[in-house]
Structures are given as structure tokens and as C-alpha cells.
Design a protein around this nucleic acid. Structure first.
Lengths: 306, 306
DNA sequence: ATCTAAATTAAGTGATGCTTAACTATATAG
DNA sequence: CTATATAGTTAAGCATCACTTAATTTAGAT
């Protein structure tokens, strides 16, 4: 590799500047350097290009034909560099860029719809790519680098240990806690509801891999309930329907179970458990201004709303 | 001026290289630097752009979304720089460029037609701009920077002294000397021709400003001739015609007076004087490979032909 | 756990790019 | 034609940059 030609943006700026001013001293002033720096910089450029670019002209110097050719290249390069500089500045300000955010449904629809809308409105040049999926899928996407951040149910303790552990590769910060309650079909006898949990069921719920399903299973079994799931769905609306149809009992986030139309009535006023939604990020991913500011909005909205 | 963004081509090359290889070490090898240099260079680039461009990925590092954006800019800039490098190389080799050469008619038509043709054929990418004009006009163009070099009659001693003198602003090197002879109309009596120069004439010749005219005037007056010019032209062919028509005597370069068709017969075998053709160049103009090689051809042809 | 590959950090060095100050060259004024 | 101002260069000194080698950290593979 014949080490192509090592140039410095600064010297190309010099060349462009002297073409736009009458004297080199003036150009130096405009660039905020001394005439000496300009002179030396241009001499260095000339040396690197290996061609005479200037010649004496009156008491100043003027570009040769070759000098004008190099000037052409210099203009193109400095224009691109300036573009890059402006782009970088706007990204640093968080005014531009890309944010790939994953959310579980309840976060996207109920908890954080407002900050997402607000962010999109206030930073129209930020490309906001939303993925709504169950926590497990979000975690996979995050680990694979397909997401920059994800709002999900707090991951269960990892079976793997050491550096492979999810905890080593992801940082989580709780953004809010929400209650889940037990919901029974409408025609369930009062005696059963107020009776011991061992009499509850049968159940419908999230698929076995679901983080929330695991939390629910643990909570119900601690109460002595026989938690066997007869029907599964990732969609809370579907579970709600199943309950209404008398297919079984379920445990759902209050906010998803009790919204119009047709809110489910709680079996018991007391919530069964509380689950934590966390903001998860990949360790080793550099901070990105746009992402930071979106996450800030989300966190703030959780504090106010929760 | 917020000092836009000072970049170094080298670091952009690094960025492009790591995108084209699997590991940074491999990229470093391809660039002929150590992995350490690459790592530090990219860290510096990241610092200057002010954005995270890389993130941990397995046991290597991968570009972030912002990194890919910067890569895009880097590719454009390095491509332009490579272009510039190739262009400069070909100009250094004299294979490309521009040569603005001035010549007096006899130089273009008789003395140096062959090297000019040869140069044009061997370096088709060099833009050869020829100006054929009297020596005085060539000298003006040269001084004004409209020509890179000129083949002309040796300029007469300058009236101006000091730094304004032409000799201070132009360098000349003799390329050849050529004879000028006296030509009389065909019907001139032998006795007049062999008689004293005071009996010669009337005369036709180059315009008063012509360098050659001044040389001729001096030579004839030294011989005692009455050199008053009845008709003027810059074109030797015209002067030749005037002589044939009996309008008067003239002094011309032998090579222009005695060529077919219709060569003029000399009044006397002995040439009247010898004039020097010089290669003139502006002082302070940097050397240009294409120009140098053309002038070389011209000088060599003069030595062989002369 | 141990080994190996990938990349970073540390320390040292030469090249680069800047500043101030002294200098050369050129034009303009008296 | 000397005097003076202007344009740019050269010299000296200094801080930063970009590399090298060597040691270290990190993460995948055995």
C-alpha cells in the first residue's frame, strides 16, 4: 500500500480560504491563525501534493493551474467535512439520530404513549424505531444489538453464571412498578372467590416463557393455588375475553384488565403481586444523545404518572 | 468560525478499513500499522466527532448506527483524497497537466513543429495550449501569467532598471541562433546589389515594435544603409510577396525567405545578421513536470536540428 | 479453570502544527 | 531614489499528534 496521501482538513481549509480572500493575511485572520501558520500549512500541503501550487504575483502569491486543480479537490473535501461536522453537532444535541426502542405492550400503549408522542413531536429528525414485543423477545433483540434500549418486565434471575449471565451484558433500571390482580369469570360463585386459593381456577395466562407468567406462577403457588394454565396468549385482551367467556381465571396488570370497554371486575380488591418494569440497556453501548433524551422523558413520565 | 472539525485522512482510512475487514488487527495489517495505532487513531476520531462510534461485540468491536453514518462520510472523503493522490501522481510524472506555450511563427512552423507534435502524441492527457504571436506580445503574456513559457527573439536591453526590469522578472536561455539575409526585388540591377549599402532600398519589414526589426535596423545602419520602412507586416509571407512585387527590399530569416513555393533569392550570399531565439520563463513560477518535459524536447530538437 | 485472540493502555519518540519574532521582497509615497 | 508600509517567509520554541513496542484487559474456545 503506497500510503496514498496523508492530508489534514485544516490545510485544505487554508487553500479554500486564500481563494476567497485578497491576501493571505486576511485569510489567516478569517481562520483565526497567524499568517505564519497559513504560510507553513500551505507549504506543507504543497510538499505533500508534490506540486508547485503557488507563484509570486506582485507582492503576494497566486495559484498556479495545478493549484486551481487542487483547490477544486479541496473544496469538495472541505464541503464534505463541513457536512460531517454539522451532522455530528446535531446528533450531539440529540436533534438527529436514530433510537431503536423496544417496549412491552403495556408500556407502549398505557404507560409511555405520551412521552413517545412528545419526543417524536419535539425531535422530528430523530428516527424513532419502536418494537413492541414480550420481554423475552426484547431482551434477545437488545443483546443482539437490534435495539438500543427496551422497557420490559424485570428479567428473572439468570440460570447462567459468569460473564455469559444476562446481568453482565445488560444494565437495568426500574422505571415503575405496577399491580397485577386476580380476575375470575363473571359467574364465579362468591364463595369460591372468598374461599381458599386452592379452589381457584382453572387458569388462562401468558405463555410459559413470559417473565410475568413466571412471577404469577410463583405468587399463586405461594398462596397454595393450583396454577395450571389451560389457555395461553401473549395478548391481554385475548385473556380478558377468555375470562369473560368463562374459560378460566387469570392474573393481569390492573391497567390492562380494567380499561374500557368491558373492564374485568377484580376477584379480590387486594392486588396479587407487583411487577417491576425496567429500562434495559446493553453494557458496552456508547451513550447516544437522542437515546438518552428519550429515556429521560420516559423516566420522568413514570415518576409523574406513577 | 467555530473551527469546524479537524480531521486527518489517515483516521478516515482507518474507519473505512475496519468496515472492510473482520478484525481490527487485520485492518491494521492491511494499512501497514500496528493494531495499537489503529485503536488509538479510531479513538481519536471518535473523540473529535464527539459521538460513540463503536461498541463491544463479541470480542471485537462493531460500528454503531452513528458509526455507520460517519463511515459514509469517511468513504466519500477518502475516495476524493485518493482521486487527488492519483491526479497529483500523474501530474508529477508529467503525464497530465497543462502547458501554455507561446511561440513566434518561425518557431512554431519551422523549428519546433516536430517536438510539439511528438509531445502531443506521447502525452495525450496534457493540455497543450499554444499561442503564436510576435515576441513582444509573448513577453507580455508571459509576464501577465497567461503563458508558462515562450520561445521568442531575445529581448532587447530593457530601458527600465532595477526590479521592474524585464530581466529581473524573466529568465531566458538561448535555444538556437538563426541567420537573416537581405533580399532584393527580382529586377534589381546587379550593380546596385553589389554596390554600397547606402544604395539599397526602399525597405519593407516587420512593425517598429518588433524585436527583429530593431536588430535589423541596427545592423543595416551600421553598414550605412538608409533603413526607412515603406510597408510593414508581421507576416513574413506578406513581406516576401511585397519583395516579389518590387515594392522594396527586406531582411528575413533565411528559413522563412527561402522555402517553397517561390523562395526569394538572396541579394548577397553572406547573411546580414544572426538572431537568437530564447526560451523565456517567468521567475517565481514553480517548476511543472509537463512543462519541463516539453521544454526538454524543444531544447534537444534545437541541438540536433541546429 | 486455562489458553488464545482481539483490542486497549502505557510509555516513549519523532513528526506536525502552532506561536512569536526577525527577516526578505515588493509596492507606494515623498 | 530613498523611506516606509505591506505581504509573505523563515527561525526558534513548544504543545499536540500519531506512531512504536510492551504490558494489560476482555472475551471466546478448550
Amino acid at each position: 500500500m503506497p500510503s496514498a496521501l496523508q492530508l489534514n482538513t485544516q490545510q485544505l481549509e487554508y487553500l479554500v480560504a486564500i481563494d476567497e480572500t485578497d491576501t493571505w493575511a486576511e485569510a489567516a485572520g478569517r481562520l483565526g491563525v497567524t499568517p505564519s501558520a497559513l504560510s507553513q500549512g500551505l507549504a506543507e500541503l504543497e510538499r505533500r501534493v508534490g506540486l508547485g501550487l503557488f507563484e509570486q504575483r506582485g507582492r503576494g502569491r497566486a495559484l498556479t493551474a495545478n493549484g486551481h486543480q487542487v483547490l477544486d479537490y479541496a473544496k469538495r473535501i472541505t464541503a464534505t467535512t463541513a457536512d460531517l461536522g454539522l451532522w455530528a453537532e446535531s446528533v450531539r444535541q440529540g436533534e438527529r439520530g436514530q433510537v431503536r426502542l423496544g417496549l412491552i405492550d403495556v408500556a407502549a400503549v398505557h404507560h409511555f404513549a405520551q412521552p413517545l408522542r412528545r419526543f417524536h413531536r419535539s425531535r422530528p429528525d430523530v428516527e424513532l424505531l419502536l418494537t413492541v414485543a414480550p420481554s423475552g423477545a426484547l431482551l434477545d433483540d437488545l443483546l443482539a444489538g437490534r435495539l438500543d434500549a427496551a422497557v420490559m418486565v424485570e428479567p428473572p434471575p439468570d440460570s447462567r453464571a459468569g460473564p455469559d449471565a444476562v446481568a453482565e451484558r445488560v444494565t437495568t433500571a426500574t422505571v415503575l412498578a405496577e399491580d397485577l390482580a386476580v380476575y375470575a369469570p363473571p359467574d364465579t360463585p362468591k364463595a369460591v372467590i372468598s374461599g381458599p386459593p386452592s379452589g381457584w381456577g382453572p387458569w388462562v395466562g401468558f405463555p410459559a416463557a413470559s417473565h410475568t407468567r413466571q412471577l404469577v406462577a410463583r405468587a399463586l403457588r405461594q398462596l397454595g393455588a393450583d396454577y395450571r394454565v389451560r389457555a395461553e396468549s401473549n395478548q391481554p385482551d385475548v385473556l380478558r375475553q377468555l375470562v369473560m367467556l368463562g374459560m378460566g381465571w387469570t392474573v393481569l396488570p390492573v391497567i390492562q384488565a380494567e380499561t374500557e370497554p368491558a373492564p374485568l371486575p377484580r376477584a379480590r380488591a387486594q392486588p396479587l403481586l407487583s411487577r417491576r418494569l425496567v429500562m434495559a440497556r446493553r453494557v458496552g453501548s456508547p451513550p447516544d444523545p437522542a437515546t438518552e433524551s428519550l429515556l429521560d422523558l420516559i423516566r420522568r413520565s413514570a415518576h409523574i404518572g406513577g
